[in-house]
Simulated scan of single mutants.
Amino acid sequence: MRDVRAQLFDAAERVLLQDGPSALTSRAVTAEAGCAKGVLHKHFADFDDFLAELVLDRIARIEHQSADLRASAGTGTVIDNLTGTLISVFGTVAVSIVSLVTFRDELRARLRQSRPTGVPLLTEVAAMIAEYLSAERELGRITADADVATLAPTLIGAGHMLFADRKGVPPEADAVSKVVTTVVVAVLPR
């Protein structure tokens, strides 16, 4: 197998998206990846080690996405940029990963070693949005007194609620935009 870690992570993501966190087992991951169960244990100390590395890999993806969002400051509209970000983040496996972290004590304990506060993944997304909002504030596209430290987690919470516990069709972009508008309208210059 080429790039075994990536194949196993992608397989885990497919299991999470198709069947949810409760279906995520080492057997389900290796079956989805089309490999023997021993392959996972050859590359990871145990299944919780695999899950911790999966979460950290997805966090790294968020950190890459953060640069793109910061670069969008001053372009398009604040509402559209934030709407696109929430759809991009929560339209993927993020909601399932949050559930996984919440319900697996050993996974949460391992992640706490490098991320002692907040909910892993959501904390990084909130930081990404706060950085973006700060850049927009510096450009005058949101008010100078905008409390980005409060706006960012508010957007994350509202976005998570829109996408959480959905089987099938994700919310329409208009529904996400309406939530974003409601949260940030007070800080948009008139």
Rank of each mutant, 00 (worst) to 15 (best):
V95T: 13
A158F: 11
L8N: 03
Q18W: 00
P153Y: 06
F163K: 01
L40A: 08
I87Q: 15
H41C: 05
G84C: 09
V183I: 06
A135V: 02
L151E: 10
L133G: 14
F47I: 03
F9L: 02
G140C: 12
F103D: 15
Q18F: 00
D10N: 03
T143R: 14
V184F: 00
S96F: 10
R5M: 00
V98I: 14
A127W: 04
Q65M: 13
A158V: 09
M1R: 08
A127E: 07
S66V: 13
D46G: 08
T181N: 12
A11I: 00
D165C: 03
T143Y: 06
E106K: 08
R115G: 14
L51K: 12
A175G: 12
A6V: 04
D165M: 05
A126G: 13
C35E: 07
I79H: 14
V78Q: 07
V101D: 01
R61D: 10
D48W: 00
A146Y: 07
A67V: 03
L162S: 04
A11E: 01
E172M: 13
K37H: 00
S22W: 05
M128Q: 08
L16I: 00
R110W: 00
V4N: 05
V15D: 05
R115T: 12
M128I: 08
L121W: 14
I87G: 08
T123L: 06
I97M: 05
L69A: 05
D57N: 14
S88L: 11
A126C: 07
T182A: 15
S99E: 12
A149Y: 12
F90S: 11
H41I: 10
S177W: 15
L107C: 01
V148M: 14
R104G: 03
R14N: 04
A149D: 06
A186W: 03
V29G: 02
G34F: 00
T117Q: 11
C35A: 12
A33M: 00
F50D: 06
A130F: 00
T143E: 08
V169S: 09
A23G: 05
T143M: 03
V15A: 10
P21R: 15
D10E: 07
V125A: 11
E106P: 14
D57Q: 11
R58F: 07
R61P: 01
A6G: 02
Q113C: 07
D174H: 09
R115F: 10
E136Y: 08
A149R: 08
A164S: 11
A146N: 09
A94E: 14
V15M: 09
Q18N: 01
A71T: 06
E32Q: 10
S26G: 11
A6Q: 02
V169C: 02
R110Y: 01
V187E: 14
P170I: 13
A12K: 02
A31Y: 05
L162R: 13
D57Y: 11
V101C: 03
S72C: 00
T75N: 14
V119W: 03
V148T: 15
F44A: 00
A126F: 10
D10G: 06
L121Y: 12
T30C: 15
A23W: 05
R112E: 01
R115N: 13
T182V: 15
R104T: 01
V180S: 07
I59E: 01
V4M: 08
V98M: 05
D46R: 06
L16T: 01
P120Q: 15
V180M: 12
H43V: 04
T123Y: 06
F44E: 04
P171T: 10
R108S: 08
V89M: 07
V89D: 06
F9H: 01
A173H: 15
E124A: 03
A158Y: 12
R190I: 05
